[in-house]
Amino acid sequence: MNNLFRSAARCLRSGSAVCVPRQTDGRSQWASVRLLCSAVDLQKNLGEMVKKDKVVVFMKGTPAQPMCGFSNAVVQILRMHGVDNYAAYNVLEDQDLRQGVKDFSNWPTIPQVYFNGEFVGGCDILLQMHQNGDLVEELKKLGIRSAVLDAEKESK
């Protein structure tokens, strides 16, 4: 019980209005407070996760084994630009993360790509940025030289 109390207090401190106790029977009330707390914590963690690495991808599967064509496309585009060093989170391993990241970015689909903590878009947007040259520029802002530039040089 003590533990529950602490987590509830933590939740209330974080200023979330939805945690205000409601007139329900005691047990379900505590359960919902706990649930909300973990959701609030996840959102906070996501804020840190997307900032921890220059390039962050939330995807289905892993870069070595993508489990969806769209996630695979993102992996292939990044590979083409020589971006190998990025944080990839597999949402299929964590249902809370799968929903949580959608809430975090207010974006309904996976994969999701972040540069320097900022939401870039999903597969369609990354693909169009790849096609129109914006991706090279955005990577440059991150201090990453796109491998596409070297490939172009070689073919000249």
């Binding site: 599967g61 993508p66 489990m67 064509g69 695979n72 292939q76 585009i77």
Partner: peptide, 15 residues
């Protein structure tokens, strides 16, 4: 568009 190689695992998950 880049085509995705369908692995056994991705087929199962798609189903």
């Amino acid at each position: 568009m880049i085509s995705a190689p369908m692995t056994e695992a991705s087929r199962t998950s798609a189903q």
